[in-house]
Design a protein around this nucleic acid. Structure first.
Length: 485
DNA sequence: ACTATCACG
DNA sequence: ACGTACGTGATAGTA
């Protein structure tokens, strides 16, 4: 995000300019490492400045020098159009989002922090009693020694450094055997995570108006996704009851609503498009429940009266396909053996035969060129595709298969983001884009414009890019982010 | 500075 | 024989 700061630096307050300087330093460091590796990324623009501060002039100078170096590379790489039409136009959109920020309910966060602290203290007492001694529950090393040495529990596995593994899958396994302390540690960890990473951090990062301002990085993810830092607002909790409470502390300004609009199964739609999978395309064209249809195809059960467990297995297979499936990974996800998982995968390939050709062609593309392309021409580098170690090579192959899908989805939502400000203005709407979370956009708008904003967002997002499968967008309106779903 | 863990799509 | 599902970032503990 160097450029956005360079572009607007003349209007910045002192604090904001200091922040911008830090960003500049950060970007230059990234540039050095990228340049050193002989690879170019799309992260710089030629933004002329007028009447700007000394910092802006400095940033502009750096920018112009970088641009002189990078533009020829973009041209040679056939990436200039993507850069000019998408990346460059996205810069002011992200700038506006960062500056606008999103409001949090600080009183609510403070109350939650205190509540979590109290509950953690109680849980800690329980854990110490069950363990038979006091120790630092937050220390994985001490916890592993307590569980697998002092208490002698089964199922312990040591990692590379000889430390016992104590992550959630391990604790879950113990909890299922009725080991009470394991469940209590999971409870404690959840609260610790929510308190430190979210409640306390957000309180500290809110400005005087109670708004938090993230920084969106355009040149970090290998697939072309954005990333979000300081604070990361792309990983705000939502999946658990307590996590959803954190998400509800993200609120609309007085008199405003939050509008959420998210693409439905966008990566699976990209798969249908890119791999040209007839049955999958047909299914999306009909607007079917895609996981139910997969279940029907793979397990041979009728769509009508599909049971939840079968659909769940099919959903895991669909995710697996997007991730560059392995029998091991699918088996672990479903809690079945790799052999059974392999049978599922074989059945999938039989019903959707085009997928095999896509996977083979994509791996070959990566091997021959060192990168793969999204449908919009973005390059995703796959450096270890020819590694002599089979394990690293297999990892690179999964990356190659996933990148056009994840990256293609990123291309599409970026195109929507570029079109939205003008579309909103033309419609007489004052809605502001405030967050992007990979397949979701979050807007803030006056209450009276919420419905119109949702409808326009849907229209622009669904029409952002023409692929051979329809895109669908779900919208919601609420006074907080949780209720906007 | 590195590792383990866990939050999200 | 091996052992990872793809992409990220923040925190606390450890060395």
């Amino acid at each position: 995000m160097l450029i956005s700061y360079a572009q607007d630096a003349g209007n910045f307050s002192h604090d904001r300019e200091t922040l911008a300087r830090e960003h500049l330093a950060h970007e230059l460091k990234s540039f050095d490492s990228v340049a050193g590796s002989g690879r170019a990324r799309l992260s710089f623009a030629n933004v002329p400045l007028a009447g700007a501060s000394a910092f802006a002039a400095e940033a502009a100078d750096v920018t112009l020098r970088l641009w002189a170096m990078l533009k020829p590379l973009l041209r040679v790489n056939k990436s200039l159009a993507l850069y000019e039409l998408v990346e460059k136009r996205l810069i002011p959109v992200l700038t506006a989002m960062e500056l606008h920020g999103v409001m949090v309910d600080r009183a609510d966060l403070r109350a939650m922090s205190a509540e979590f602290e109290g509950r953690m203290a109680e849980i800690e007492t329980d854990i110490h009693r069950l363990a038979g001694q006091d120790f630092n529950v937050g220390s994985p090393k001490q916890l592993g020694e307590i569980l697998f040495e002092r208490m002698g529990l089964p199922g312990g596995k040591r990692g590379k450094a000889g430390a016992w593994g104590t992550d959630s899958s391990v604790l879950e396994g113990l909890a299922e055997q009725g080991i009470e302390v394991a469940q209590r540690v999971m409870d404690w960890r959840q609260l610790a995570k929510l308190k430190s990473t979210y409640a306390d951090a957000l309180i500290g990062q809110a400005d005087e108006n109670g708004r938090v301002h993230t920084s969106f990085q355009m040149a970090v993810a290998a697939t072309g996704r954005l990333s979000s830092t300081d604070p990361n607002l792309q990983n705000i909790p939502v999946r658990t009851v307590e996590g959803a409470r954190i998400r509800k502390t993200f609120i609309a300004a007085p008199g405003c609503s939050l509008i959420s609009a998210d693409y439905s199964q966008i990566e699976l739609r990209l798969l249908a498009h890119v791999a040209d999978i007839a049955a999958l395309k047909e299914s999306f064209a009909k607007g079917e429940d895609i996981h139910a249809r997969t279940a029907s195809e793979v397990f041979g059960v009728p769509m009508a009266g599909m049971d939840a467990a079968t659909r769940r297995r099919a959903k895991a297979i669909n995710f697996g396909i997007i991730y560059g499936i392995s029998a091991f990974g699918l088996g672990r996800q479903l809690g079945i053996g790799a052999g059974e998982a392999k049978a599922y995968i074989d059945a999938y390939f039989k019903r959707y035969p085009e997928i095999r050709a896509y996977m083979e062609a994509t791996k070959e593309e990566a091997r021959s060129k060192g990168y793969v392309l999204t449908p919009f021409g973005r390059r995703c580098w796959v450096p270890r595709i020819k590694d002599k170690m089979p394990q690293l090579r297999a990892y690179a192959e999964r990356q190659a298969i996933n990148a056009p899908l994840q990256g293609g989805a990123a291309d599409i939502i970026k195109q929507a983001m570029v079109k939205l400000p003008k579309a909103m203005a033309d419609a007489g709407l004052s809605a502001t884009l405030i967050l992007q979370v990979h397949d979701e956009l979050l807007f803030e708008a006056p209450d009276g414009q919420a419905r119109a904003t949702a409808e326009l967002a849907r229209e622009v997002m669904q029409g952002a890019a023409g692929i051979s499968v329809p895109l669908t967008v779900e919208t919601g309106i609420g006074k907080n982010w949780g209720d906007a779903h």
